[in-house]
């Protein structure tokens, strides 16, 4: 369980996260949606201690992220940020091996190698594992980074817009993979999404942020509703039921 209580963050005079209290349940896939500048990524960064928290606390399984040692937390919680630029020349399998750093500190054991191989296979990277990252397309590189997070094998996995750079086929595959990781491996997956319909079809739980505050949260049926989406995005929406999913159109 991730418990967020009274969390605020401001840059100078600008408040970007305003007193957010929220509990993300253990297990399942939670999506965080909301318009640009709603504070989704900032909140996620604070949960993963990438940004210092101005006020309030974030507890992951009873551990305060601001006080817990970094390497202890790295075995429970992992995060993938949006833009992952690397100056260094690394192969895909080199990159994925870094996911084992919290456990092995650079000396890979057989168990580590098993995790790395499984993560590569899971992301369909077996063919590419000896290629250098700068020889891959944006989508392939994105999958390599996701494989690294998977190899880290933490109970909580946070992804900041994991569908960036992915075409439709790979975006669907990625969401299925994250849902399966939640369902089959018992992981807790939290994603920041821009595509409302992906959130609607794949999430167990949706959190809506708006202007730095928690706006709504609940199961997709409660959230993907015309009045809520119109208020959130200040855009006209139509929501239809299609094959048991709620699909929003806004074109």
């Amino acid at each position: 369980m991730i418990g967020i209580s009274g969390v605020s963050k401001s840059y100078g005079q600008t408040v970007v996260i305003d007193d957010v209290s929220l509990t993300l349940p253990k297990g399942g896939l939670t999506s965080i949606i909301g318009p640009n500048g709603a504070g989704k990524s900032t909140l996620m960064s604070m949960i993963a201690r990438l940004l210092p928290i101005d006020r309030g606390t974030v507890m992951v399984d009873g551990l305060d992220v601001a006080l817990t040692a970094g390497d202890a937390l790295a075995k429970r919680l992992s995060i993938l940020r949006q833009d992952n630029h690397l100056a260094a020349r690394l192969t895909v399998s080199d990159l994925v091996s870094f996911g084992r750093y919290p456990y092995s500190k650079g000396r890979l054991t057989d168990e580590d190698r098993g995790h790395i191989e499984r993560a590569l296979t899971y992301l369909g990277l077996d063919e590419l594992k000896h290629r250098f990252l700068d020889e891959l397309s944006g989508g392939q590189r994105q999958r390599a980074f996701v494989a690294m997070v998977l190899a880290q094998d933490t109970d909580y996995m946070l992804f900041d817009e994991p569908l960036n750079n992915l075409d439709i086929r790979h975006a669907v595959a990625m969401m299925k993979l994250l849902r399966d990781a939640a369902k089959d491996l018992g992981k807790t997956v939290v994603v920041v999404l821009h595509d409302i319909n992906f959130a609607s079809c794949y999430s167990d739980h949706i959190v809506v942020m708006r202007r730095g505050r928690l706006f709504r949260q609940g199961v997709p049926e409660e959230i993907i509703r015309e009045e809520i989406l119109i208020e959130t995005y200040e855009t006209d929406f139509k929501v239809r039921d299609m094959d048991g999913n709620r699909i929003a159109t806004f074109y």
Partner: peptide, 21 residues
């Protein structure tokens, strides 16, 4: 510290996420 240097090379966010101070 060679392997810590390698992790540092991945940039701040990734290094923190992998538990490096």
């Amino acid at each position: 510290m060679f392997s810590v240097f390698d992790v540092m090379m991945l940039g701040r966010d990734t290094a923190v996420a992998l538990g490096v101070d």
